[in-house]
Structure formats: C-alpha cells, structure tokens
C-alpha cells in the first residue's frame, strides 16, 4: 500500500526533505496509474486527495455552459488538486489526457502530517504556493490573449 520512500525522490521539492520526513510522507502516499480518459475527480466534488504527477499528463477542465473547456494541463513534478489542502470542493475536473503515474496523498492525513512535522508542512506549503503563483502568472498570460487579434503579432 505505502510507497517506497525513494519514489519521492522524483519530486525535486521532496528531495530536499530529511529522510525520516520523506518516510512519513511515503507512508501515507499511494502510487496510481491511469490511462487516458480516466477522471481523477470532478468539479464540485468534496475535497479528497492531492496528487503529484510522476509522469504523464493531467488536464484540468471546467464546465462552461454545456461544454467542458480545458484550462490547464499538468505534467511531471506538478501538483494536482491543491484545493483539497484548503478543504475546498474541487474547482475543476482532473482528466487524464495521457497515461499517467501519480502519487496520491489523501488530504486529511497529509494535513495532519504537516501539522505534526513542520518540515513537511513547510515543504508542502512552499511547493503549493509556488505552484499556485506560477499558475496565476500563466493564467494572466492566457487572459491577455497574446496571440489574439488585438495583440501584436
């Protein structure tokens, strides 16, 4: 059930954690493989697990009226489902768009671990913060519609 702590080495931010902290984290993580088309969670679902992509591609989609629009795809080393860390409902649907290997960590044991071990807590939160920040910048760029008609070139 629990994964080998060395699996966590794949994630740069976890490599920096002390061995015991990594082991604690590994203990609450599971490894999953999904083929394209699978859905990790759906928009509006209750909070659940946080995922780390080891390989493959997960696309976040949102419902716009009757249709489903892709807003971002995530790949290796990236975090999926961070909103569960805030105990919020899922804001987007996570769709496997390419066969993926994921590390699954349930939000409640993870939050407990973060509370208990500040080293893990800091690493996880720092990573989540960086991810969110990058996504914010990216989203702004997408909003700018740089390749649209009004924009140059």
């Amino acid at each position: 059930m629990a994964v080998d702590p060395s699996t966590l080495d794949a994630m740069p931010f976890l490599r920096r954690l002390a061995a015991d902290a990594r082991a604690e984290l590994a203990a609450i993580a599971t490894l999953e493989e999904h083929s394209a088309g699978a859905v990790l969670f759906r928009e509006g679902d209750a909070p659940g697990a946080v995922f780390l992509v080891l390989e493959g591609r997960v696309t976040l989609t949102m419902r716009v009226g009757q249709r489903e629009a892709s807003v971002l795809s995530l790949g290796a080393d990236e975090l999926v489902g961070w909103s569960s860390l805030l105990a919020r409902r899922r804001v987007a649907t996570a769709l496997i768009s390419q066969r993926s290997r994921l590390l699954r960590i349930e939000a409640s044991p993870l939050l407990e671990l973060c509370e208990r071990d500040a080293r893990v807590g800091y690493a996880v939160m720092a990573q989540a913060f960086e991810d969110v920040s990058d996504r914010l910048v990216d989203t702004r760029m997408q909003l700018l519609d740089l390749y649209g008609k009004g924009a140059s070139r």
Binding site: R57, A69, L95, L146
Partner: peptide, 21 residues
C-alpha cells in the same frame, strides 16, 4: 494552447510552462 475543448489531449497552458518542465 491557451484554450481548448476537453477533447484536446495536448498541452493546455502557456509555452513557458512547457519550457519549465
């Protein structure tokens, strides 16, 4: 691409995100 329907299996997001990976 910046935006796509859910049937698009390729990347969605800005080009720098790809570069980072």
């Amino acid at each position: 691409v910046d935006r796509a329907s859910a049937t698009w299996r390729g990347h969605v997001g800005v080009v720098t995100r790809l570069l980072k990976r």
